[in-house]
Design a protein around this nucleic acid. Structure first.
Lengths: 143, 143
DNA sequence: TCACGAAATGAAAATGGATGTCGTTTTCAG
DNA sequence: CTGAAAACGACATCCATTTTCATTTCGTGA
């Protein structure tokens, strides 16, 4: 059984918050971790169903919210308005191909520090940000 | 009657695309231009109603889509998932206060050029981007 | 100016992702 | 083992936006 670390993290989180360890949560975590990249609640539900018929989408949504709270997943909202989930890891931003839908992650410390300057200039206190570049990926550009 | 330039632009666009010049479109444009900042379809519809009862929200949504196509407005999607419209002008990004909802626009050429580097590094062709900083504004921060 | 076809309108219904409700089932501490 | 709390799943509901469609309006060209 893979993903021992994450399973432990979930178990820990559940215990710390007096929440219950159910097969559904276990199953959803497992399926979610096998997904590479970003997945919508609906797609995730479909995948979960394949292996564990009977798990409803309500539970999938609830569980994903839980995994986000537990720091194992995070929610992303791209331009189509549909919520997508990704495995939580180092901070990064996204490059999205508007043709094929491919999503590439990037990270840029120069931008991060420039952001800090901006925030300071306006007197804001930064909580989080969102930076997405939309275009055509190498395979889709036609020039 | 204000906003002559924009009215002309709309008229031009309609003519170029064999679309019709209606009172509703005129009215919605007028009300939209008077709004400072970012407005949701719903709010805009409410405002339009005050001055021009009878204009349905369907028409407001359709017209805003049209104004976007005509380059007079642009759509923005912040984290709450609701579409907001703003008057189209120089490129800029946003600083959003998650407490009071205030939205401040900013512009940063350093970030823009850093973006270009990233895009090039991954072989993408950049079409547009979205860069939002979420936090607390000077009036809302509690430290 | 008129008339006609194309386009636009608006009311209502549909959509679709996400969340709330509620009766039933499961978990787990004592 | 038992009971209360939590979670489940089916379904209903929400709500912004879109679609549908019958009716009205626009504007070209006769």
């Amino acid at each position: 059984m893979a993903h021992e670390l994450e399973r432990k993290a979930l178990a820990q989180y559940l215990e710390d918050h007096s929440l219950k360890h159910t097969k559904q949560r276990e199953a959803i975590l497992e399926v979610f971790l096998e997904v590479e990249g970003h997945i919508t609640g609906d797609d995730l539900h479909r995948r979960v169903q394949q292996r564990h018929p009977g798990i409803g989408y309500t539970t999938v949504y609830r569980t994903m919210k839980l995994l986000c709270d537990a720091g194992l997943a995070s929610e992303r909202h791209f331009d189509d308005g549909v919520t997508r989930y990704e495995v939580e890891h180092e901070h990064h931003d996204h490059l999205v191909c508007v043709r094929c839908g491919k999503i590439v992650e990037f990270e840029c410390s120069m931008i991060e520090s420039a952001q800090d300057d901006i925030v300071e200039r306006y007197g804001f206190r930064l909580l989080r940000h969102r930076h997405e570049l939309y275009g055509h990926c190498p395979g889709c550009r036609d020039d």
